[in-house]
Simulated scan of single mutants.
Amino acid sequence: MPLARTADLVATARTTGHALAAFNVITLEHAEAIAAGAERAGAPAILQISENAVKFHGGRLSAIAAATAAVARASSAPLALHLDHVESVDLLYQAHAEGFGSVMFDASRLGYGDNVKATAEAVRWGHERGIWIEAELGRVGGKAGEPPLDAHAPGVRTDPAEAAAYVADTGVDALAVAVGSSHAMTERTAALDHTLIAALKEAVPVPLVLHGSSGVPDDEIRAAVAAGMVKINVGTALNTAFTGAVRAYLAAHPTGVDPRAYLRPAREAMAETVTSFLRLL
């Protein structure tokens, strides 16, 4: 089926009081697993490609974007294409031509004033082309190349009043907020601030996004959705499943050399993880 629009999927999730999962794509197997998992769950999903994934592919967006879009169009599940954690304006400007319906523009490393200015410009550019723009306020932490960050340290979490001003000044369509999760967690031990999530929902008129959801236990995710989270980003959980399956296969077949033999169970492990998250939501 045609690519779904992130804006439409998010709006439906928000209206029905559910949440929409967004899964990170690094390889073709990731995209295939996300599509298979969504079909099994009978649920929509977002396939998102991060700037770091683009760097992994030599800085070239076109090939991985085209492959991911082809997988999404061939699926019976409603799937949208999203460009994630974009810091490079040059990469942002490639989004429309490559078929992305949404972009997470990440100016969170900048000071507040510069963040607002850069994000407002990204929103203006995106809206002129029908692209839905997500941004981040607060410090989620845990991304590659960043120093360790305590998700509960003072000044890390998103302030509701500042979030309201930020959304008004930038015009973003969704806001990723820091409420106790962290990127790249391999254990599901994060404790979220549900009171803060509820306060943020009241303060801002746009959907809230939870980054670092791989490290959040099921009950915490359910409570976060009930408190107001709408888009739930999942990346590391897929990589954990993928790598675990590859390790298990190679341990049992130490002389094997055909990558299809271990990529097949790796893809299946990721598909099962996708289905599990979608059924949770």
Rank of each mutant, 00 (worst) to 15 (best):
L83Q: 11
E136G: 12
V257I: 14
S213G: 14
Y112I: 12
A178L: 06
A22I: 04
A261T: 14
T240H: 04
A11N: 02
L200P: 07
L92W: 01
P205T: 14
A163R: 01
A35P: 02
L91Q: 08
A144F: 02
P160I: 01
A199H: 11
V177Y: 03
A43R: 13
G155A: 03
F56T: 14
A77H: 11
V123K: 01
G142M: 12
G99H: 05
D84N: 13
K55L: 12
V216G: 03
L110I: 07
H85E: 10
P254Q: 07
D106I: 04
D150A: 11
I49M: 04
L92Q: 10
A97M: 06
A65N: 12
A226C: 04
D114G: 00
N233H: 14
M229W: 02
A107T: 11
N52L: 12
R260A: 11
G141V: 11
A237G: 13
E220M: 13
I26K: 08
I64H: 01
V179M: 09
E128R: 15
L83R: 00
R260N: 11
L79P: 08
V206K: 08
L3I: 01
L81Q: 10
I133D: 01
V209R: 05
G228I: 07
G155I: 04
A80G: 07
V209Y: 10
T186K: 14
G244M: 05
F242D: 10
